[in-house]
Design a protein around this nucleic acid. Structure first.
Lengths: 150, 150
DNA sequence: CCAAGGTGGTTCCTCTTGCAACCAATTTGC
DNA sequence: GCAAATTGGTTGCAAGAGGAACCACCTTGG
């Protein structure tokens, strides 16, 4: 076992600084290419992949706060990348979907996103990436089980 | 290869939400037990392990912004957990170190921190943890090489 | 039906975070 | 030995994130 009193050996610390390094790098890229922030990119990714959704559905799909989803949607709507249509089944919400320009941007982003992921994780083999995903999933599941208590 | 157009298959996304889940969980714990935020805890961890240091050294050790370090130190100082002594070698900076009460808190925190890490990563075997650390290191190195350009 | 409670969405406010400008002290170059 | 550049630290500001309160609409129980 390594010296477990060193900050640089704490897994949560390593996880945090690695995640930050990757996020910063990616945020720069999205902003430079498309003027999109990460929340906005996430919303587009879900809509482009799954098609129309309500904000509620987007909150679940992106694991973001509903306020963050709302803001991202409004920005995208203002830029004409996203449209709202009344939800006949529920007057409180709308169906959100990419507009034609939105889909165009989406199709332009995807290759860049994949290429960036490729570059970012080029240090890992295909097997290692699969394993890494699996480890992350298990850690997250564990971290989320012991939730906050009122 | 998995469907690479799903947000939930993107490694940066998985990394981000996992890191957030772990960080939130840990932040709750530190606040509940000691009223410490993560930046403050990191400073204490480094000082407790390495002994006295300047803010500059803490910035490097914790990979936090110098402003974050400064604020964390001031909070700890106000609580009497950390002391400043003039740096005879450089009048601009001070040597910061844990006070006696600070060391007491440090010794109380460490077991809890280790136990929390243990609980959080209990889904992983010892080998998997080592591997996970290694993967994180490689990813971070890669993400940091391609830095921002002016 | 209609009152009470629940839910999607929005706004407001607070707290945190990071950058940029700044001050003081030190080092470097002439 | 002093002006210029550098560095450690501090302050101020502005953007981001998240919580709580709120509105509009829906659902359920009497």
């Amino acid at each position: 076992m390594a010296n477990q009193t060193r900050l640089t050996d704490f897994l949560p610390y390593l996880l945090s600084i690695t995640s930050n390094a990757v996020s910063d790098r990616i945020a720069d890229e999205y902003r430079a290419h498309f003027g999109l922030k990460i929340p906005e990119w996430r919303v587009m990714a879900v809509l482009g992949d799954q098609g129309a959704a309500t904000q509620r559905a987007l909150v679940e799909a992106t694991r973001m706060d509903k306020v963050a989803v709302n803001r991202a949607c409004r920005v995208l709507e203002d830029r004409g990348l996203l449209g709202r249509r009344p939800n006949s089944a529920d007057g409180r919400s709308h169906h959100l979907d990419l507009t034609a320009p939105g889909q165009k941007v989406y199709r332009a982003i995807m290759p860049i996103a994949l290429e960036m992921e490729e570059r970012m994780f080029s240090a890992l083999s295909a097997d290692e990436r699969t394993l890494f995903k699996d480890l992350l999933e298990r850690i997250r599941a564990e971290a989320e089980t012991t939730g906050a208590q009122p």
